[in-house]
Design a protein around this nucleic acid. Structure first.
Length: 239
DNA sequence: GGGAGTGCCCGTTTTACGTCA
DNA sequence: TATGACGTAAAACGGGCACTC
């Protein structure tokens, strides 16, 4: 496994029941969980025009990315598509349809040619989809990027893909899966937190119940006498 | 208002790889 | 030691939704 669970940098600090506010969830060293996950990264500054939501960027991207299916591996991929051969589980209109229209562009195409691993994977003539195991270096770089920003704008994606010698689609998929793993991890942490909350509340409830019983035991005579109209403080009942 | 294009999320499938009998 | 079954992590896929133009 390229990324161990520990590599996610998870740490959980719990302090119960004195101060629930002391709970700290730190999923990753530089990635603040939940609330910040959706924030746009500062790394955007690296790429000017980098706000993925900006009009210029989107328009840029749209014209930028068109016409090439990044899922298609370089070289032989073209032949396969034209021959109507795709992966066993994908139709021509599936991946190549949805992604090709939005991610194809000259730069990516050129970059894909440089993807030696992809080429070698496909050159064996096997038409089934080959899953590429990322190298440790590739995973490390992706992790570093993810720590900086857990989403990518198109330019960042291209730059990263180029740097790693991967297809932009692979980088995109990696980030999607990485976000999913982070979310799953956060859910596990949240569940653990709630579980501990429940345990502490149960214990607190048990303690309070016991305390109530003790108080009732102490005050029982008074309570009974107060409700007893025949009671007289100096009256000694028959035994 | 609605269609097209795009990005992201989510659930699922497929594949690579480690473990164990 | 070889090998096949099995489990798991992760890469990849497909559909849906939201958003923008």
């Amino acid at each position: 496994m390229a990324v161990e669970k520990e590599d996610l940098g998870l740490s959980l600090s719990l302090s119960f029941p004195q101060n629930y506010n002391s709970l700290q969830l730190n999923l990753m060293p530089s990635l603040v969980p939940s609330s910040v996950i959706s924030q746009k990264p500062s790394w955007n500054d690296t790429f000017h025009s980098s706000d993925p939501n900006s009009d210029s960027c989107r328009a840029d991207t749209r014209s930028f990315l068109r016409g090439i299916d990044v899922n298609r591996l370089p070289s032989t991929a073209d032949c396969e598509e034209e021959a109507g051969v795709s992966s066993p589980n994908s139709t021509i209109s599936s991946v190549s349809g949805k992604r090709s229209e939005r991610e194809g562009n000259g730069e990516e195409h050129e970059m894909e040619r440089d993807c030696s691993r992809g080429i070698s994977d496909e050159e064996d003539g096997d038409t089934s989809r080959k899953k590429l195991r990322l190298s440790k270096d590739q995973s490390a770089i992706l992790e570093e990027s993810f720590k900086e920003h857990n989403t990518l704008n198109p330019k960042q994606k291209l730059a990263l893909a180029k740097q790693l010698g991967l297809r932009p689609r692979q980088v995109e998929v990696w980030f999607q899966n990485r976000r999913a793993r982070t979310k799953l991890k956060q859910t596990e942490v949240d569940c653990e937190f709630l579980k501990r909350c429940c345990e502490n509340l149960t214990e607190e409830n048990r303690r309070l119940q016991k305390e109530v019983q003790e108080l009732r035991a102490l005050k029982l005579p008074t309570v009974l006498h107060a409700n007893d109209p025949t009671y007289h403080p100096h009256h000694v009942p028959f035994m």
